[in-house]
Design a protein around this nucleic acid. Structure first.
Lengths: 120, 120
DNA sequence: GAAAGTACTTTCCAAAAGGAAACTACCCCT
DNA sequence: AGGGGTAGTTTCCTTTTGGAAAGTACTTTC
């Protein structure tokens, strides 16, 4: 008799797995968390500000990632009609709902560093 | 006067950012969360079990991801001396500490689906 | 009118990630 | 000795990701 599949994959598990995939696909890429984290700290930053704040990122990636985040309503983009045209990027109310995730990731990462230290 | 950098990037922020990068690099790749999630549900699964449980994964990826997870002590691998040799994979005590992250990701993803539904 | 600042986009390329299929190797059963 | 199960590894290929550098366009300041 051949084992056919799915033992633990109940509907509940499937939904959870799908949900995790959704979240991760929205937050995928090397820079999403850096951008979100920076925007959560310093509200309302311009493109060049972000370029300076986020060490190592290039303008192509910053532009692309901001578009991704904007299309998912996590970040807002407002063109100001100042003398030299400026653009304000900010986290949205919805973007702030990611805070628990970001906090858990940071907490775990900090504990991870400590555990490496302790085990040596 | 040229703007030089780092407005909000205080030491605290730097540490948080680093921690998030650490966590994400450990959990990187398409399959890590699927594997961890499956192992958290059904404890002690064999290689072929995982291959069947995780829809779409191939043996190469499964093998590689399991090695990654094992080297970070999130998953244990035990060779059983049964008649046809079998191997037990299980989450470690340490791996279970990822639960809060996984739960937050799932929670957010479920809410995200609902918000898509509601806005239409 | 040249330099410098705003905000990007485009091109070109290298590296990383991931998948399909085949292959190894060993054991059990009939 | 052939079929089926265990646990992987290897090869070859395509897709995705990301980076460096240069270019666009428009404005203010010296």
């Amino acid at each position: 008799m051949k084992k056919k599949a799915v033992i633990n994959n109940t509907p509940v598990c499937q939904v959870r797995m799908q949900a995790i995939s959704d979240t991760m696909s929205i937050l995928s890429g090397k820079w999403k968390f850096h951008i979100l984290g920076t925007l959560i700290e310093g509200e309302k930053l311009g493109f060049m500000d972000l370029l300076r704040e986020i060490d190592g990122i290039g303008s192509k990636m910053l532009s692309k990632e901001l578009q991704d985040l904007e299309s998912n309503h996590l970040v807002s983009r407002t063109v100001m009609d100042t003398k030299p045209i400026t653009v304000n990027y900010a986290i949205t109310k919805y973007g702030v709902t990611l805070s628990p995730i970001i906090n858990e990731l940071a907490k775990w990462g900090i504990a991870y560093r400590k555990s490496l230290h302790g085990s040596k």
